Every structure is written in C-alpha cells, then in structure tokens.
Computed example of a mutant assay.
Amino acid sequence: MTAHPPLRSYGRLKTRAIKPRQAALMETLLPGLRPPPGPFDPCTLMPTATGVWLEIGFGGGEHMAAQAGLHPDALIIGAEPFQNGVASALRHIDEAHLTNVRVLDGDARELMANLPDASLDRVFVLFPDPWPKARHHKRRVIQADSVADLARLLKPGGALRFASDVAHYVDWALALFLANPAFRWTAEDAAGWRNPPADHITTRYEEKRLGDVAPVFLDFVRV
C-alpha cells in the first residue's frame, strides 16, 4: 500500500509580498538557523544549552523571540510553514541578536519525526489554526498521534502549553491530552486555565481576539 503524507495542518504559505529587509534575511540568516535534515540530536545545535524548547507554529515569532531573550541558556526551536511569519520571526531574531533560536520554515511534524525520544524540555502550541469546519478537524495539528509523539519527545517532568481562543478546539485538545496517560493537566481550578500563566507572553495576534472565547491556557506535565 502506498504511504500518504499527513494532511496539511496549515493554510496558505504566503499572503503578501515579503518586505525587502525580511526577504534578505530569508536569504542570509535563515539558512544558518535551519535544523539539519534527517534525524539529529538538538543538543548538538547548542551544546551549552540547559534545555531544549519547541514552539509548534510560531506565527510571527513574537513569543518565540521574547522567550529566547528571557532564557538565553535554552535552545528554542520553532517550526512555521507560513513564509510571512518566518520572515517576521527572522526580523525579531536579528534585531534582538538572538543566538539560541533555530527555525524550520516547514511542517513541525517533519521536525518532530527527526528528534530523538525524551529530547525536549518544553513545548508550546499557541493559537494554532482551529480549522473550524467539522470536515476539516482532521487537519488540526493536535490529534491523537501528534499527542503521542509529543509524549515521546518530552522528558519526564517536561512541560507543554496549549492555548486557543476557540472553544471547540480547547475541548478537543483537552480531551486528547487527558486521554494520553503520559500527560497530567496542572490546573487546580478555573483560574488555572482562564488566567494567562505568569511566564506567558501576549502577542499582537492573541490581542486580536479572533476566536469565540477569551484565550484559554492548558498546561500539562509529562508524567
């Protein structure tokens, strides 16, 4: 039987012309930030790193760059297929002179497949495409198989944060993470998911409030 590639979990790759400065960074800065093709140990990318973090779908890169600036000892790897977002992230990285960020301009699932077991200390999945139509739910990045892969990649005690302002996607993600015994939800009361975590960084995209509910934050620990 012929193997089929996974369904795309993202929409258009580009919506507008990339600004000249950002286009130049795509040519000069991005090649040196891309993770190597094929299986690799992320520790080799920054041997001095005290931890390895992954952001799946970093949008315009505001959160990723800000976290990298606050945690210079951590290696932060981001994956984003949307080219305008990648270009924006490169601008943030360049302006802040960040050396602890690596960027895959493609599908995060390709990156995850190349990482070894228990290689990540932290994962962020913040405001992913909700694919609101029922027939498109299968395209959501959070599925039973991706949750299982995240469980494989996170170290025991590692942290994962999912955030969304789409009620159905929040319910969807919570059910899938709770169904996997590798994850424990850390919320003890409603404030645990209604209030932004102390270390959360709000982005301009989040502030647009494009969903149908106030942002919900689900924090999990790898058991």
Rank of each mutant, 00 (worst) to 15 (best):
H63V: 03
L104P: 06
A108K: 01
D94W: 14
H63G: 12
Q83I: 02
D94H: 15
G59N: 08
S88T: 05
I77T: 01
E110I: 05
P81W: 02
G59A: 13
P81K: 03
T99S: 15
G60I: 03
N100S: 10
H92M: 12
H71P: 00
N84D: 15
V52P: 11
A89M: 11
P47T: 13
M46Q: 13
N84R: 11
R91I: 03
M46S: 13
L98K: 03
D107P: 03
D105R: 05
L90H: 10
A96M: 14
A108W: 01
Q83S: 08
D107Y: 02
M64K: 01
G106Q: 01
A49M: 03
Q67R: 08
I93L: 07
L54M: 11
A66P: 00
H92Q: 12
L70H: 09
L111V: 07
A79F: 07
E62D: 14
E95F: 00
I93P: 09
L45W: 06
L90V: 09
A108N: 00
D94M: 06
P81M: 03
D105V: 00
L98P: 11
L75F: 05
N84S: 09
D107N: 01
L75Q: 02
V101N: 13
H97I: 00
S88G: 09
L111K: 06
M46C: 08
T50L: 14
I56F: 12
G85R: 11
L90G: 01
T50M: 04
R102S: 04
G78T: 02
I77G: 02
A108F: 00
I76W: 12
A49V: 00
E62C: 13
M64D: 03
R102P: 06
F82G: 08
E110S: 09
E95Y: 10
A79I: 05
G51A: 15
L54D: 09
G106C: 03
V101Y: 14
L98V: 04
L45N: 08
A66E: 15
R102K: 09
H71M: 06
G78F: 13
V101L: 11
D107F: 00
A87S: 10
R102T: 04
G59M: 09
